[in-house]
Computed example of a mutant assay.
Amino acid sequence: MDHGHLDVPYDEEAHQRPREIEVDGARFERIPIKTHVVLPGEALDPVIEKYALPVLQDGDWLFMTEKMVAASQGRAYRVDEMTSRPLAVWLSKRVVRTTTGIGLGMPETMEWAIREVGTPRILFAAAVSVVTKRFGRTGDFYRVAGTKARGIDGPGYPTIPPYDEMVVLTAAKPRQTSEHVRDVLVGRGRSVNVLLVDINDIGGNVLGSTLTRADELLVARILKDNPIGQGHESTPLGIIRRVT
C-alpha cells in the first residue's frame, strides 16, 4: 500500500527524514501524525481517536510523545506564573545546559526539578557533579537527579507556542497511560500496541508501553533519528509499521 497517498494528517513538508528504516534485516515504516496543538489539560482520548484511529492498522505500534501526554495531564506551567526559590536560581547557573535545550539551566526548570524530586536529591546530585567534574566527567548532575528532573522541558525556540513560554514536566504513569490508550483503541476495533516515548535529535527512549522490554529496545533503534521532528511540526503522534 502506498501510504504517501493516504488521506491522513501527515506533515510531509516539515518532515525530511526517511519514512522507512531497516533494523536487523527488517524494514519498518515510521508514519508521523500531525495534530492540532494539544493544550494543557486537554483530554487525550479524543485526540487519539480523531488523529490516530483513522490511520492505524492491526499490528501497528502507536507512539505518543511525552510532552503531549504530560500537557494533557496538566503538567505544563507558564514561566511567568512561577516564583523560583534562591536555591533554584543559584543551581541553575551552575548546571551544564543540554545539547537539545535549556535543561535545568534556568531558575524555573530547576525550581520544578526541586519540587519533583526534592531538595536533598538535587543537592546530592550537585555535590556528586562537583566531584566528578574534577575527573573529567559531565552529566552526573542529571543522572543522579533522575528521570523526573532530567525530563523537564523548558521554554524557547523551536518549541511550538504556547509551550515556548512554559515548563513541561515528565508524563505521569507512562505505562498505565499506554495501557489505557491501547484499551481505548482495542475498544474501537484496533489491535495495536502503544508506547510513550521521549525522543529528540540525539536519540530517545521508551518511558512506558504495552510491549515487551525487547521490543522497547527495538523501538529506540527504530526511532533513533527522531522521525517526527521536534520543532513546529506538531506531530506528537506516530506509527511504527513493519513492512518486511
Results as ranks from 00 to 15, higher is better:
Met1Arg: 13
Asp2Ser: 07
Gly4Lys: 15
His5Pro: 05
Asp7Asn: 15
Asp7Ala: 14
Asp11Gly: 01
Glu12Ile: 14
Glu13His: 13
Ala14Asp: 01
His15Arg: 01
Arg19Asn: 08
Arg19Trp: 13
Ile21Cys: 11
Val23Trp: 15
Asp24Leu: 14
Arg27Pro: 11
Phe28Gly: 03
Phe28Cys: 00
Ile31Leu: 15
Ile31Gly: 12
Pro32Ile: 00
Ile33Asp: 07
Ile33Pro: 06
Pro40Cys: 10
Ala43Gln: 09
Asp45Glu: 11
Asp60Gly: 07
Leu62Val: 04
Thr65Ser: 08
Thr65Val: 08
Ala76Leu: 08
Tyr77Ala: 01
Tyr77Asp: 01
Asp80Ile: 07
Met82Tyr: 08
Pro86Asn: 02
Arg94Ile: 08
Thr98Phe: 12
Thr100Ala: 03
Gly101Tyr: 02
Gly103Trp: 01
Leu104Asn: 05
Pro107Thr: 00
Glu108Leu: 11
Glu108Gln: 15
Glu108Pro: 13
Glu108Ile: 07
Trp112Arg: 06
Ala113Arg: 04
Val117Thr: 07
Pro120Val: 06
Leu123Ala: 05
Leu123Glu: 07
Phe124Gln: 12
Ala127Tyr: 14
Ala127Gln: 12
Arg137Phe: 09
Thr138Phe: 10
Val144Ser: 12
Ala145Cys: 11
Gly146His: 13
Tyr157Ala: 10
Pro158Leu: 03
Pro158Tyr: 03
Ile160Thr: 12
Pro161Gln: 05
Tyr163Arg: 04
Asp164Gly: 09
Lys173Ser: 09
Gln176Tyr: 02
Thr177Asn: 05
Val184Ala: 00
Val184Thr: 03
Gly187Ala: 04
Gly187Lys: 02
Arg190Met: 04
Arg190Trp: 04
Val192Ile: 08
Val192Phe: 12
Leu196Met: 06
Asn200Met: 09
Ile202Gln: 05
Leu207Pro: 11
Leu211Ile: 10
Leu217Met: 11
Arg221Ser: 10
Leu223Trp: 08
Ile228Tyr: 15
Glu233Cys: 15
Ser234His: 12
Pro236Gln: 03
Arg241Ala: 00
Val243Glu: 10
Val243Trp: 09
Thr244His: 15
